[in-house]
């Protein structure tokens, strides 16, 4: 179990991370979201012991993470890089050996991993001959082939097309099912929503959101209403608790300031019987993200 407690880190006058706490249990995936410069990478670097926190602590299985725990760790840095002239197999083998895996075990496991991540290229190919996306997958394999217990992935989806992103998603879920504690950062909220058991949002180093995806969304109330009925925009706008109405083709997208307004709108819309759509939802993660980011800039 990874426990991060009250982490704070300042660089000069700039506070990179302020009083950040969270826990990632084995078999759990935690998403870390936030704008560029919100403190995600700094958080990872403190977990990895690259940076010393000004206050607070990080513990892994109940003790501070040290070099002795490196073999249980899988890390994909935000900045990608491999030895361009090295062969794919040699490269992965080197990283895996550094994590305590034997060369023989690496060579035995490699074909299955290359297949699982659908890497286009042979193990004997030089890394630089591979496309960027495939290089990224090779690096992922290098970070994961030793079956780490704690996985840290900094922006793993960046640069992957939707198909490869799904391949990666499946790979991460499989690691979780094998009992690894996984923490990753992302800008892509649809990935985060689909993948995370729980998530943390950082803004200027401070935790502004924490919890499971449904918890976070529902904490904002069902303020989003998708409606396809005989009611016009002007009619809907008349209801108390309606903030704004927008037309999106045949449907209206209504933003409510009071979720209770949904009931009256439903009654009015269904007064004459059947309507194709009435869906009252909490805001999406993407909307919440924007909301939170904009909150400070108002």
């Amino acid at each position: 179990m990874l426990e991060v407690q009250h982490l704070t880190k300042r660089f000069g006058t700039m506070t990179a991370v302020a009083d950040e706490s969270f826990t990632v249990r084995p078999g759990e995936i935690m998403g870390l979201i936030g704008q560029n410069g919100a403190g995600k990478t700094t958080t990872f670097r403190m977990i990895l012991n690259f940076l010393r926190p000004d206050s607070g602590s990080v513990s892994w299985q109940g003790h501070p993470l040290t070099a002795a725990d490196y073999n249980q760790l899988g890390y994909l840095p935000e900045e990608r890089g491999l030895y361009p002239k090295m062969r794919v197999a040699d490269q992965i083998q080197y990283f895996a050996e550094l994590r305590g895996m034997s060369g023989k075990a690496v060579r035995a496991a490699l074909p299955e991993w290359l297949d699982r991540f659908q890497v286009k290229g042979k193990p004997s190919d030089q890394v630089k001959s591979l496309s960027k996306g495939n290089q990224q997958k090779v690096q992922l394999i290098a970070a994961l082939i030793h079956q780490p217990r704690l996985v840290i992935l900094d922006e793993p989806f960046t640069g992957l097309d939707p198909v490869n992103a799904s391949v990666l998603e499946a790979g991460i879920k499989r690691l979780r099912d094998d009992g690894a504690a996984i923490i990753y950062s992302s800008h892509n909220m649809s990935n985060v929503e689909a993948l995370s058991d729980h998530l943390i949002m950082l803004k200027d180093g401070a935790v502004v959101l924490a919890g499971t995806v449904p918890e976070i969304r529902h904490s904002f109330g069902r303020t989003k209403l998708f409606l396809e009925s005989a009611l016009t925009e002007a009619q809907v706008q008349e209801f108390a608790g309606v903030q704004s109405v927008q037309r999106d083709g045949a449907r209206l997208v209504v933003t409510l300031s009071d979720p209770a307004a949904g009931e009256a709108i439903f009654a009015a819309a269904t007064a004459k019987g059947y309507i194709p759509e009435f869906s009252q939802q909490p805001p999406t993660l993407d909307e919440i993200f924007r909301l939170k980011v904009e909150a400070g800039h108002a």
Binding site: L48, Y70, N71, Y75, P77, E79, Y83, F95, L98, A143
Partner: peptide, 9 residues
């Protein structure tokens, strides 16, 4: 940027 990955191992 290989260094960061190496130093985590």
């Amino acid at each position: 940027r290989i260094m960061e990955m190496l130093l985590s191992a």
